[in-house]
Computed example of a mutant assay.
Amino acid sequence: MTTDTLEAPKTETGKGLAIIADLTPEIFTPEKAAEIVADVRREVLAIDRDVSTKKGRDAIASMAAKIARSKTAADAFGKQLKADYKVKVDAIDGIRRIFWDGLEALQKEFRAPLTEFEEAEKARVSRHESALADIARLTVLDGVPTTDAIADRLTVAQAVDTSTFQEFTARAEAAKAEAVGKLAMMLEAAHQRDAERAELERLRQEAAEREAQAAREKAEQEQREREERAAEQARQEAERAAAAERTRVEQEARQIQEKAEREKAEAEERAAQAERDRLDADRRAKEAEERAQQRAEEAARQERQRIEGERKAEEEARSRREADRTHRATVNNAAVAALTAAGLSYGDAKTAITAIAKGDVPRVSIAY
């Protein structure tokens, strides 16, 4: 909106206030408002403000009231002018909406075939991109995959049909080739791991069998040596007992013979009695020798029983040790497999479990 420039009054007192009382839209501008307020200021402040007389005080009050009425009049004019402009602005906004809504609907209607084509094309491309991502994800398997799992995934990758990928065929073929190559290498590595595990298990079993055989042979040798020592000890004890009995009997016989010789003159019957005593002594000696032999045999029997008991106890202890070694080996192998699955190499996992089992790792142990 253009407005005419209004010359500010220079001489007539009260002209600024008069202009405020008769405002028009053309002069209701920031520049004119500032100019009019400045004119009123000059006019009013030029008046003598004598407060020493009642007339002077009344004149000041009267002029202040006029200024207040002019202020209210200017503000009321502005409010009305704003309301008039708002009606016009609202009407313009309505016309804008007519143009906008009508032309936007026409734009959508006219562009609908292209929009549908673009959305269909976007969906088609998205399907191809998703399929390409699926091919790439074929090489992703959870944890440490088994040989069979890798082989199954390789079969799936080899069966991917790239003939339906349209302009993405080259990318699909490259993604397929890459997935097949990676899975083939993964399968070869898995076969190698399986072979290494089988060989390790075979060597471990052979070592365990050799150790068990050596333990059995050692136990049998120790058993034979114990039996031989016991038999020799029993034989020596029997010989010592028999010799002692013979010595005693011989001493008794000599004593009897000496006595018999001394008493030979006394009587024949004494000689006969001596002979009977000798014979009885021989009998007792024989009985003593038989008792000594029986005691030796009983000692040998008890020793054999003791040795058999020790052998059985050793076999039971060996069985318990073998079961414990087998159980510990199973637990340790499971721990090694878990650490290998977590990402450690087999050697590192085995070294870690061996150190823990030996108690070399503080505050860490294996629950058997």
Score class of each variant (00 low, 15 high):
residue 233 Q to S: 14
residue 233 Q to L: 13
residue 233 Q to V: 04
residue 234 A to C: 02
residue 234 A to W: 03
residue 235 R to G: 05
residue 235 R to W: 12
residue 236 Q to P: 05
residue 236 Q to H: 13
residue 236 Q to S: 13
residue 237 E to I: 10
residue 239 E to T: 12
residue 239 E to G: 03
residue 239 E to W: 11
residue 241 A to R: 07
residue 241 A to P: 02
residue 242 A to Y: 08
residue 243 A to N: 08
residue 243 A to L: 09
residue 244 A to N: 04
residue 245 E to K: 06
residue 246 R to Q: 11
residue 246 R to V: 10
residue 246 R to K: 08
residue 247 T to V: 10
residue 248 R to H: 05
residue 249 V to C: 14
residue 249 V to A: 15
residue 249 V to G: 14
residue 249 V to Q: 12
residue 250 E to I: 06
residue 251 Q to L: 15
residue 251 Q to G: 15
residue 252 E to I: 05
residue 252 E to F: 14
residue 253 A to G: 12
residue 253 A to N: 10
residue 254 R to S: 05
residue 255 Q to W: 00
residue 255 Q to R: 04
residue 255 Q to Y: 00
residue 256 I to T: 02
residue 256 I to E: 01
residue 257 Q to L: 02
residue 258 E to H: 08
residue 259 K to W: 06
residue 259 K to T: 03
residue 259 K to R: 12
residue 259 K to H: 07
residue 260 A to S: 02
residue 261 E to M: 07
residue 262 R to F: 01
residue 262 R to N: 03
residue 262 R to W: 01
residue 263 E to P: 01
residue 263 E to Q: 10
residue 263 E to I: 06
residue 264 K to F: 01
residue 264 K to H: 04
residue 265 A to Y: 06
residue 266 E to L: 11
residue 266 E to V: 09
residue 267 A to P: 03
residue 267 A to W: 02
residue 269 E to F: 07
residue 270 R to L: 15
residue 271 A to T: 06
residue 271 A to I: 03
residue 272 A to R: 15
residue 274 A to I: 00
residue 275 E to W: 00
residue 275 E to I: 00
residue 276 R to T: 07
residue 276 R to S: 10
residue 276 R to I: 07
residue 277 D to R: 00
residue 278 R to H: 04
residue 278 R to W: 00
residue 279 L to V: 06
residue 279 L to I: 10
residue 280 D to H: 08
residue 281 A to P: 01
residue 281 A to T: 04
residue 281 A to C: 03
residue 283 R to W: 05
residue 283 R to Y: 03
residue 285 A to N: 06
residue 285 A to P: 01
residue 285 A to C: 08
residue 285 A to V: 01
residue 286 K to S: 12
residue 287 E to I: 03
residue 287 E to S: 09
residue 289 E to P: 03
residue 291 R to Y: 06
residue 292 A to L: 00
residue 293 Q to S: 12
residue 294 Q to W: 01
residue 296 A to I: 05
residue 296 A to P: 01
residue 296 A to N: 03
residue 296 A to D: 04
residue 297 E to C: 02
residue 297 E to D: 13
residue 298 E to T: 07
residue 299 A to Q: 09
residue 299 A to W: 02
residue 300 A to K: 08
residue 300 A to C: 07
residue 300 A to E: 10
residue 302 Q to D: 14
residue 302 Q to T: 12
residue 305 Q to I: 15
residue 305 Q to E: 15
residue 306 R to I: 05
residue 306 R to V: 03
residue 307 I to L: 06
residue 308 E to M: 13
residue 308 E to G: 11
residue 308 E to Y: 09
residue 309 G to V: 14
residue 309 G to R: 12
residue 311 R to F: 11
residue 311 R to C: 08
residue 311 R to K: 09
residue 312 K to L: 11
residue 312 K to D: 12
residue 313 A to I: 03
residue 313 A to L: 09
residue 314 E to V: 10
residue 316 E to I: 06
residue 318 R to D: 03
residue 319 S to I: 15
residue 319 S to N: 13
residue 319 S to M: 14
residue 319 S to T: 09
residue 320 R to Q: 08
residue 321 R to T: 05
residue 321 R to W: 02
residue 323 A to H: 09
residue 324 D to A: 15
residue 324 D to Y: 08
residue 325 R to H: 15
residue 325 R to F: 10
residue 325 R to E: 12
residue 326 T to H: 14
residue 326 T to W: 08
residue 330 T to I: 12
residue 331 V to I: 11
residue 332 N to H: 12
residue 332 N to Q: 11
residue 333 N to Y: 10
residue 333 N to K: 14
residue 334 A to M: 15
residue 334 A to P: 05
residue 334 A to D: 14
residue 334 A to Y: 11
